[in-house]
């Protein structure tokens, strides 16, 4: 039971990070783009924050917003100068351009900051407290709080602000949104800025102790893809729930499935947790082809 609760705590913490990544994917998806470079956005954000704190002695609480601004500007620049030329191109092209950006940003990060592992410069370290026999790190609590704050912010943003509503309208139908006077290029820029925000926060917490920061950090984003489909493509609530499910599934599978002591289903092999989310996705999609919260697409001929 203790193991289970301990895994649950870890699962929720990881799930929050996945939820942030999935939220980033979903927001950009509102502009009709799937952003395979999200992982590199997280990588750059985490490195910028780490560099500011450890090399420039900027306090962490100041470095985090600075990192967010850098990555948001990067995302907006990509939208403004590259993606905008690509409108009306096939899905395939858009996927490839973001994959190209992903490779580019990762190599540039390695060139600037090197291959070595480093810490992310957060003040939490390995400190924490115990509830009974369950160990909870302060970093996990902060992940939860930051995610909740961001989710509340987005809830109000999408529900009550002019830009939020305009973004939802754009996601539903670009042409209709443009026809009622929504400035699409402005909306696209905001979308990419938001992605920068959630990517940086997600990246920084992903590199928090006991994990470390290195150039492989961004690959975790690839494991978050099932979240956006699990919840239903384009649904923000779905993305967040999908992310939480993903985190829990991954941590529980890493705890219980394998060939070690007290583990089951050894035939699935060690490290099955890394693909468990994709297997889960496959099963869910076979039953519900549009995800748990998605709507059926209707195509007009």
């Amino acid at each position: 039971m203790t193991t289970f609760l301990q895994l649950l705590v870890q699962g929720v913490a990881l799930g929050c990070i996945y939820a942030l990544i999935a939220l980033g994917f979903t927001v950009v998806l509102m502009a009709g783009v799937i952003n395979f470079a999200q992982g590199s956005f997280m990588l750059v954000g985490a490195y910028v924050v780490s560099w500011l704190v450890l090399n420039m002695q900027v306090p962490f609480l100041l470095a985090l917003p600075m990192g967010v601004i850098v990555v948001a500007l990067m995302g907006m620049g990509f939208e403004r100068f590259i993606l905008r030329r690509m409108s009306a191109r096939p899905v395939f092209t858009i996927i490839m351009i973001t994959l190209g950006l992903d490779i580019f940003l990762r190599v540039v990060t390695i060139l600037v900051w090197g291959q070595d592992q480093r810490t992310n410069g957060d003040p939490f370290g390995l400190d924490g407290f115990s509830v009974g026999e369950i160990r909870i790190n302060w970093a996990d609590i902060w992940i939860l709080i930051s995610t909740l704050i961001l989710l509340a912010f987005f809830y109000f943003f999408f529900k009550f602000t002019k830009y939020g509503v305009a973004m939802r309208a754009t996601a539903l139908d670009h042409e209709a949104a443009a026809a009622v006077g929504i400035n699409l290029s402005q909306i696209y820029l905001i979308t990419w800025a938001i992605t920068g925000l959630v990517a940086t926060v997600g990246g920084v917490f992903l590199a928090a102790s006991p994990r470390v920061l290195d150039s492989n950090l961004g690959f975790v984003a690839l494991r978050a893809f099932p979240a956006i489909i699990l919840g239903g493509l384009g649904s923000t609530v779905g993305a967040v729930l999908g992310g939480l499910i993903l985190g829990l599934v991954e941590v529980l599978f890493s705890g219980y499935v394998g060939t070690g002591p007290n583990q089951f289903f050894g035939f699935l092999g060690n490290g099955f947790y890394t693909v468990a989310t994709y297997v889960l996705l496959l099963i869910v999609l076979l039953v519900r082809p549009y995800g748990l919260f998605g709507k059926k697409e209707v195509e007009r001929v």
Binding site: L29, I34, V91, I95, L222, R223, F225, P226, I228, I229, L233, L268, G269, N270, G271, F272, T274, V275, Y278, V279, L281, L282, L285, P289
Partner: peptide, 23 residues
């Protein structure tokens, strides 16, 4: 599945396939 769905399913294929090869 179409479009993005298909792309992500093929991504899953690489991950699940890699796990099978490894084990």
């Amino acid at each position: 599945f179409r479009g993005f769905y298909l792309t992500i399913m093929t991504l899953g294929m690489v991950f699940i396939g890699g796990h099978i090869f490894l084990n």
